[in-house]
Amino acid sequence: MEHSVVSRQEWLEARRALLQKEKEVTHARDRLNAERLALPWVKVEKEYVFDTPSGPKTLAGLFDGRSQLIVYHFMLGPDWEAGCPGCSFLADHLDGSLPHLNHHDVTLVSVSRAPIEKIEAYKRRMGWRFPWVSAFSNDFNRDFHVSFTPEELASGHVTYNFTETPTEQAHDELPGLSSFYRDAAGNVFHTYSSYARGPEELIGTLMILDRAPKGRNEGSTMDFVRRHDEYEEKPKAASCCH
């Protein structure tokens, strides 16, 4: 992008005009957040049991004594060699949020279909601390439309991000985020889910880049992203599949 070089006064005038638009976006986000909180809930009737480093846990058990649970559907399939670079990029931002979320009655957990041993190995490689469990032995990821069978992928379309998505735009695993509430009686309710670029605001690095002189400087969405221990390797196209 070509940029004109102007006086400080001209820059201030342009910046103040942009500030008004930024404020409009902030206020629009506040309104959107209020609408998100007002969404109706769905009671989770099905029982899911997850494999965790400390043994099997139900969905209610993942709350870890809190009333709110946020699940990040991390793309790591049973036969994948490593986690999705894009999901790994997002996950790099989670550990610092944990004490703040926990203090605010929120538990954050990642869920993948890979066996727990594979999850633990990749977690050690990346140096992460956030809770991460396996849905290998249940239908959780399929029921929340982020994991797909070979038959579904061969059908021509899958349901993802609340729409029918052509399978050429899909993988066996896709990213997402789901929120749940547990009441005093132990009932669990599904309150919210977001897919595709929906959870993008969790990625603080992107928010910083949006304020850098060159912005995200990408040809396609997050094409510059690598796993954080691969930036010194020969450049290759980033991918969210194995």
Rank of each mutant, 00 (worst) to 15 (best):
G83M: 03
A114C: 07
P85M: 10
G215C: 10
A14Q: 06
A185H: 12
V42T: 15
H27C: 12
S137Q: 13
M75R: 06
E233G: 03
V6R: 12
A212C: 14
S194P: 00
T167S: 03
D64Y: 10
K118E: 09
R197W: 08
Q20G: 05
R211C: 11
L174I: 05
G215P: 11
W128P: 11
D95S: 04
H100R: 10
D95I: 09
R226N: 12
D79P: 07
S110I: 01
E152S: 07
V225K: 04
I208E: 15
K57N: 00
E168V: 00
V109C: 00
S4P: 03
G77H: 00
D183I: 14
F224M: 05
D105Y: 02
E218R: 10
C240S: 07
R113H: 01
H228V: 08
L37V: 01
I116M: 09
A184S: 14
P85T: 15
P199N: 09
L90R: 02
L18R: 10
F144R: 09
F189W: 12
M1W: 09
D30Q: 14
Y231E: 05
L37D: 03
E230I: 04
S134Q: 08
K23W: 03
E47P: 00
F180G: 01
F180M: 03
P131E: 08
A34S: 13
N187H: 14
S134C: 08
I203R: 10
R113A: 02
E81H: 14
V106L: 13
K21T: 07
W132D: 03
D79F: 11
V109M: 01
D30P: 05
A17G: 05
K21L: 10
K21H: 10
T58Q: 04
D64H: 14
M222K: 04
P115T: 00
Q20I: 10
Y48N: 01
G186Q: 14
T221D: 04
W80N: 07
V158I: 13
H145M: 06
E81F: 11
G215N: 12
G65H: 08
L94W: 15
H100F: 09
E218S: 13
L37T: 01
R15F: 09
Q20K: 08
I70R: 08
P78F: 08
A238W: 01
A114P: 00
E164H: 14
R66W: 10
Q9W: 05
T149M: 12
D210M: 05
D92G: 10
E13Y: 11
R226T: 15
V158K: 02
L101M: 01
T107P: 07
P99G: 13
A38I: 07
F50L: 05
Y160M: 12
P199I: 07
E24V: 04
G127D: 07
H3C: 02
G61T: 06
S67F: 12
R182N: 04
